[in-house]
Design a protein around this nucleic acid. Structure first.
Length: 321
DNA sequence: AAACAAAACAACCGCCTCCGC
DNA sequence: GGCGGAGGCGGTTGTTTTGTT
């Protein structure tokens, strides 16, 4: 038998609404209220199904609808509520007066989801993605802005943002290394142990940027589903404009590791996935220190590929030495 | 200026829940 | 308690707009 689709009934119109149809719907509802949506189209003189009328009214014609771009506050609210409620668009919409669930859903799918992915966060869990190569490039893009800002110090926030990005890049890299090295060595190191390991490093504990992140996000090094707190830092996210960040690093990211870019201060010298796998295969957690004894030049053994960014850093020195 | 691609938005579809009978 | 209708919700698709080459 099966349910009869509500809009399949003979000749009911589908597709975009005309101004005349809108006018009829608005006038009818203003005069009589919507009452039964099923009965409304006939009474209002519309050749539409009730469902279509309801959708048109709630998503577009309702007088209290706020249109136009979402503000920063609204964006933050959506992010926060989504981290708590998930894809409960109607529930989220109740906290944003004048916004419809459909509008929020569209905004999420076209903007916020991409931003989170770009920042290296899983848009469903709001946690950092554990696959390093899906998240690192985007943080690197931010980190690489440092060179630009040295010459054009346009904004304190931007400088802070860049510093945070650098720290996050390092952390994600470290986390990846610890886990990869441990699993390669057949050690069953857990997420918690990784976190404890990172937290045990004094330079991490004392780092002001990381501390400020930790203050706002109680479990900054958590991964997977270890916590329900979203890790993404609001300032990072709100400053990250749409995908037009100069991703010049992508060239080097995708290139072979033995062809380093000339300007490594701008284009982060990063090994390819396969190369990093090789590095990790050759490097257990117990001999990570060997990496520091090499120079950061290209073309040598596996350890010579460690990104230069890490060698002038106190945290990395503590870990790798 | 034209063609193409990507982004943004509106609307539809099918499933689910609630409620009255 | 079971059934069916109505409304609501979330996922998805189709169309339009905007940007890029």
């Amino acid at each position: 038998m099966g349910r009869s689709p509500c809009c399949d009934e003979n000749g009911l119109k589908k597709g975009p609404w005309t101004p005349e149809e809108d006018e009829k719907l608005v006038q009818y509802i203003q005069k009589h209220g919507h009452g039964s949506w099923r009965a409304l189209p006939k009474l209002a003189g519309l050749n539409r199904c009730g469902k279509s009328c309801r959708l048109r009214w709630t998503n577009y014609l309702r007088p209290d609808i706020k249109r136009g771009k979402f503000s920063q506050d609204e964006e933050q609210t959506i992010l926060h509520l989504h981290s708590v409620l998930g894809n409960k668009w109607s529930a989220i919409a109740t906290h944003l007066p004048g916004r419809t669930d459909n509008e929020i859903k569209n905004f999420w799918n076209t903007h916020l989801k991409k931003k989170l992915i770009q920042m290296g966060f899983d848009p469903m869990t709001h946690q950092p993605r554990t696959d390093l190569f899906s998240s690192l490039p985007h943080l690197l893009a931010l980190a690489n802005l440092g060179d630009l800002m040295e010459h054009h110090p346009f904004d304190e926030n931007a400088v802070r943002l860049q510093a945070e990005a650098v720290q996050l890049v390092k952390l994600q890299y470290l986390q990846y290394l610890f886990q990869s090295a441990a699993s390669t060595a057949n050690n069953n190191i857990t997420d918690r142990e990784t976190i404890n390991l990172l937290n045990s490093i004094p330079a991490i504990k004392q780092n002001p940027v990381l501390n400020s992140l930790q203050a706002e996000n109680p479990a900054p090094f958590s991964i997977g589903n270890a916590t329900t707190q979203p890790l993404h830092h609001p300032s990072l996210l709100s400053h990250l404009s749409d995908p037009q960040v100069p991703f010049s690093f992508q060239t080097s990211f995708n290139s072979q590791g033995d062809n380093p870019p000339e300007d490594s201060s701008w284009v982060f010298p990063f090994p390819t996935t396969s190369l990093l796998s090789t590095m990790i295969e050759e490097t257990s957690i117990s001999n990570l220190g060997d990496a520091t004894s090499s120079t950061s030049s290209y073309g040598g053994g596996a350890s010579s590929y460690w990104p230069e960014l890490f060698f002038d850093d106190q945290i990395m020195h503590e870990i790798l030495s």
